[in-house]
Nucleic acid binder design. Structure first.
Length: 580
RNA sequence: GCGCCUGUAGCUCAGUUGGAUAGAGUGUUGGCCUCCGGAGCCAAAGGUCACAGGUUCGAAUCCUGUCAGGCGCGCCA
């Protein structure tokens, strides 16, 4: 609809250019928006206001000339000039209800568009360290990333999703050590478990699986395992324990404990996310980057640029050349690559795999990391604007009015699984999807749980179920609903009906802006709006009780609304139940 | 100290890229089917858009400064 109006106004502007009213070279951007006040028409444009200066004309007079130059159209019922020079457009009823047949024709594809032009996009999200279960903070990233992927696919992007498994580095040493120590306790050793090892009960479970299979195979006496050498520095003491652990059980033993932990934890995360309706196209292992030599190759490539240099025995990346506050180590003095090194290799590999655009969804605690990764990608010859990081702010949890502290190592957190069980996937995903990512989120657990039946998700789902119910009723009354798609929409003359149809018309536009701005929360607000119009309409007018032709036209409108709600709910990963 | 995010109704949040009289939910108050699903609908009340300047026909939106809160500033990942 906007496209057709666009053409009409382009014609009008061209005519004014020919008449010399508007300078011929003048750049013109014609935009239409939806006025919130219905008396201002269905669509409005500020074209005359933006042209007034260049044309040296009073905006209202210019608006009149534009209207005079407007070619006649069946879509437009009335055009008015208002305020300082807005042009308000009232659409003809027939064009407003054209959308009903389009929705019927396109079904679950209604709302999709091609603003993405098939661009190949890789969205990486969650990527939580496999050192424990996902918590509600990860849930926010999961809901956002997955919804964004769905919306962008619907808008014509070719989207892949990926989870990066951080299965290398010091955290893994600590994980393996934690499991081994619990294992020793199961073997009967007695000692006090280090405070900075992973405390969660799941560590016991992993240790138990090893103990069940291998018995006391990796048991050693702990009598002189713990030393007081680093009593003042618990992190150093931890590293010392790790190396002792590795030397005592050998690399096979170390691997045994690490693999046992990773197998269980990654699988746990995968099934947890699946229950949250989040499934990835690929799970990418950090270790695989080392094994395949990609890290060495990428560092070698970076060495050929002017942005890598040696200092204090380490290799540094000149991040300051790209706006970072200081240079960063890529390879440590001891020869091992840093986390940045594997990240450079990983992201370069994404480009090498043929993706034009990389979208990373990160937690707020990683925002300081953006500049250096962007810098390395630029140094390697990529266009940095194709690397987009969306920062998802933290969810601050409240329970009983008190902030809940979150710490993975401490084992004290609310897991995503708990949340799913308590409020359900539908409500949880809807709740997350409502917020734009950069908004700090106060998550009141008591409220989310206790008010779960008043959660806004039910409002939208209820609208869907309500339409389904009307059709069930129709069936019971032996009404043939197959004919409704041929119904005469000129019979729809109520204001509520026009309001509803207007909302249905907007859906493709909402999808497009949600996708291009990467703000999927617009879908949620749109769904609430459509649902409200449906409820309002249904409350004010009878559908099944009217005579056949009008009834069919109304059923057609209802069914189209149901379809749009179903499509929208699907985009945010929420079910559209036929009854509740 | 520096950087990023945030500040809109009692509370939780939107605000279509600078537009018209500032928008929802929730909470409060009052009303609405003996009828297709009341998990609904309608109405009222509720605002110095953190504060101060600036840009222009026009600012919650853009620029500068101030204040407040969150997060970050490792040869951790």
């Amino acid at each position: 609809m906007k496209q057709q109006l666009h053409k009409l106004f382009e014609n009008a502007v061209d005519a004014l250019k020919r008449d010399g009213v508007v300078p011929p070279q003048q750049d013109i951007e014609i935009r239409f928006d939806h006025p919130r006040d219905k008396s201002h028409g269905d669509l409005a444009t500020n074209l005359a206001l933006s042209l007034a200066k260049a044309a040296r004309q009073n905006p209202r007079e210019l608006a009149q000339r534009l209207i005079d130059a407007l070619p006649p159209s069946e879509h437009i019922a009335k055009v008015e000039i208002a305020g300082p020079g807005f042009i308000n457009i009232f659409l003809s009823p027939s064009s407003q209800f054209e959308v009903l047949s389009r929705i019927h024709r396109q079904g679950c594809r209604y709302g999709c568009c091609d603003v993405g032009h098939g661009e190949k996009v890789l969205i990486e999200f969650v990527s939580a360290n496999p050192t424990g279960p996902l918590h509600v903070g990860h849930g926010r990233g999961a809901a956002f990333g997955d919804t964004l992927a769905r919306v962008m696919r619907f808008a014509g992007y070719e989207v892949d999703t990926e989870y990066y498994i951080n299965d290398a580095g010091r955290q893994m040493d600590i994980l393996a050590l934690s499991v081994w120590l619990r294992y020793l306790e199961l073997c009967g050793e007695e000692f006090s478990f280090p405070k900075n090892c992973y405390q969660g009960d799941y560590i016991w479970d992993i240790a138990a699986t090893v103990h069940r299979v291998d018995g006391d195979k990796y048991r050693i006496s702990t009598s002189n395992f713990f030393s007081a050498e680093y009593a003042h520095d618990s992190e150093k003491a931890l590293d010392q324990m790790t190396s002792k652990f590795r030397s005592q059980v050998g690399s096979d033993g170390y691997q045994r404990f690490l693999d046992a932990a990773l197998d269980i934890l990654v699988e746990d995360i995968r099934s947890d996310l699946k229950g949250f309706r989040v499934e990835f196209d690929r799970w990418f292992s950090e270790r695989s980057l080392y094994q395949s030599g990609i890290i060495d190759r990428t560092i070698a490539k970076l060495k050929q640029t002017e942005y890598l240099y040696e200092k204090d025995g380490a290799l540094w990346f000149r991040a300051t050349a790209f706006g970072d506050e200081k240079d960063r180590v890529v390879v440590r003095e001891n020869g091992t690559p840093t986390y940045l090194a594997s990240d450079i290799a990983y992201h370069q590999d994404k480009f090498d795999r043929g993706f034009n655009k990389l979208i990373d969804v990160w937690g707020a605690d990683h925002h300081g990391y953006i500049d250096r990764v962007k810098g390395t990608l630029e140094a390697l010859g990529n266009n940095p604007t194709n690397f987009i990081v969306t920062i998802v702010q933290f969810a601050t949890l409240y329970r009983g009015g008190q902030k809940v502290s979150m710490s993975t190592r401490g084992g004290e957190f609310v897991t995503l699984r708990e949340l799913r069980q308590e409020v359900g996937t539908d409500a949880a995903r809807f709740f997350y999807a409502q917020r734009k990512p950069e908004q700090h989120l106060d998550f009141d657990l008591d409220l989310a749980k206790s008010q779960s039946t008043e959660n806004p998700v039910y409002y939208v789902q209820y609208a869907h179920a309500r339409v389904c119910s009307v059709f069930k009723q129709a069936k019971q009354r032996n009404i043939d609903t197959a004919e409704i798609f041929e119904s005469d929409s000129t019979l729809l003359q109520e204001e509520h009906e026009r309001n509803l149809a207007n909302a249905l018309n907007k859906f493709p536009e909402i999808v497009a802006t949600a996708a291009t701005n990467r703000e999927p929360h617009h879908i949620v607000y749109y769904l609430r709006d459509v649902s409200n119009r449906l409820h309002t309409y249904y409350n004010a007018h009878n559908v099944l009780g009217t005579e056949a032709e009008l009834r069919n036209a109304r059923l057609n409108l209802m069914d189209a609304t149901r379809q749009v709600i179903a499509n929208g709910l699907n985009l945010i990963g929420v079910s559209a139940p036929e009854q509740m």
